[in-house]
Nucleic acid binder design. Structure first.
Lengths: 207, 207
DNA sequence: GGCATACGTCTTGTATGTAACATAGATACA
DNA sequence: TGTATCTATGTTACATACAAGACGTATGCC
């Protein structure tokens, strides 16, 4: 069985990312504890962790405030994401395994590009980028990147349920993969930069 | 009065950074609790936080392992630090307050360059860099940078107690400050890059 | 001797109890 | 009316209790 702490963590994190706990809400440990069916202790540990991830802010004796997404946060996340992705693209170890993995993930995106599979699509999308970042071999940046993607999840309204955007994403990823295959790092960086530009524009166009 | 959790956190963190708890040591909550004079609960919260900072690793039902510094970690920290510093240098809002603050910190470094003030020297050094990073206005990167500096603390053998290295650092920082005054961003990045190169070399030369 | 098993010890994971703090709203008073 | 104070309620911060898991070691058996 999974631990009580991780159940509490997953529950709260998912609720925040899906806006079931909206930005600005003040959560109490006891309330969450009874929802999840555990005691307050594991809930408290989950909230502590979510605070370090930047999703909530703990106010002593008051409760846990679900941080509203601010323009500053959006800008910081996007800026940092671009920094990490372009940098790691310049350092990634490019080999047959990497190409094979990226190919597989791109294929998964194509398979799930229908409106019904939005969740799987988003997952493959995310894994694609993550794989590329991880290929640079820097664990600190890989972990940072993961937390950025989580935070970005809250910002997107209805990510990827739009077929046009799904098609855009597939096209962009194909270009990134082709660039990786070519081994031309400048081309990879350019492709990633362009991809993030379109993604950013879409985000701003809807928020 | 400060909270029990923060006392436990400070105690353990300092002990790890100063190698009082050496890499590879297995800590138990109860042991720390009695050292600090609090119950296990706040100790546990402190350890959880230190795990997210990459200083310890919690093994279920076993204890908290003080992570030994690995070559991989050294490389990741240095690489990430350079990435963050050079990037933020390119975005920092350069104004009179920034220049004044950096000047003040450089002055503090000069004041404390004697061997007796190693701690104050290191503190001013760190604040100098932190101020520059923060001037870019990206909270995510600023926070990341802080954690990198903590981790780097463990790697340096006897940081800055060497007068030659202190003089080197002051010279490098002067050049960075001059570059900031000039407003030439390329020059700032170059100065930072050179500074990190010498710092890295010193680190490797001794470890 | 060699192997499996049982046991004792250490440690955590989780629940629960308690006191102190923060706040909102009521109340008293000028 | 406006202000200060009191009180009721909700919430955490921390301590403590207890059960269960992980290991090292001894024990029994061949």
């Amino acid at each position: 069985m999974t631990t009580a702490t991780s159940r509490a963590y997953d529950h709260v994190k998912q609720a925040i990312l899906e806006r079931a706990y909206p930005g600005g809400a003040l959560l109490s440990e006891g309330e969450i504890a009874s929802e999840v069916g555990v005691s307050r202790t594991p809930v408290r540990e989950a909230l502590l962790r979510l605070e370090t991830e930047g999703l909530v802010r703990l106010y002593p004796k008051r409760g846990a405030l679900v941080l509203p997404v601010s323009p500053q946060e959006i800008s910081d996340v996007l800026e940092t994401r671009e920094l990490v992705e372009t940098f790691t693209a310049g350092r990634a170890t490019i080999g047959p395994e990497l190409v094979a993995e990226l190919t597989r993930l791109l294929e998964a995106m194509r398979e799930h590009s229908g409106a019904a599979d939005a969740k799987e699509f988003a997952h493959a999308d995310r894994c694609f980028h993550r794989t590329l970042v991880a290929a640079a071999g820097n664990e600190i940046l890989t972990q940072l990147y993961d937390s950025l993607r989580d935070r970005q999840l809250r910002m997107a309204r209805l990510t990827a349920s739009d077929p046009v955007r799904a098609a855009d994403a597939i096209r962009d990823h194909s270009e990134i993969l082709a660039a990786v295959r070519s081994g031309d790092r400048r081309r990879i960086r350019t492709a990633i930069h362009r991809h993030l530009q379109t993604a950013t524009a879409a985000l701003h166009g809807r928020s």
